[in-house]
């Protein structure tokens, strides 16, 4: 069975207020070596057993483009892996 792990992130230059707030906590904790933090979303999709890798790949791209990301402000990456 094919499974997809998808990460959706803000594009460079888009305000990421959650990351800014977490950065403050890092500073308070003394982790001064961390100079950039970015937040994002993680999705995991499992396909039916009969679905081939190529079909799964097309489907993942489609749902990312149509629904899971907004191309105006976000990029996505994904990995497909075979799981039992």
């Amino acid at each position: 069975m094919w499974s997809a792990k998808i990460i959706v992130e803000y594009k460079e230059g888009i305000l990421d207020p959650e990351a800014k707030t977490i950065q403050r906590a890092f500073d308070n904790l003394g982790y001064n070596d961390i100079n950039k933090i970015q937040t994002g979303r993680y999705f995991k999709l499992n396909f039916e057993n009969a679905i081939k890798k190529e079909e799964a790949d097309v489907n993942v791209k489609e749902v990312c483009d149509k629904l899971l990301s907004n191309p105006v402000i976000e990029n996505y990456t994904y990995e497909l892996e075979e799981v039992s």
Binding site: I14, L15, P17, E18, T21, N70, V72, I73
Partner: peptide, 10 residues
């Protein structure tokens, strides 16, 4: 066109 994102001051 465009998008709406989180308010600047959260």
């Amino acid at each position: 066109p465009g998008a709406l994102i989180t308010n600047k001051h959260l």
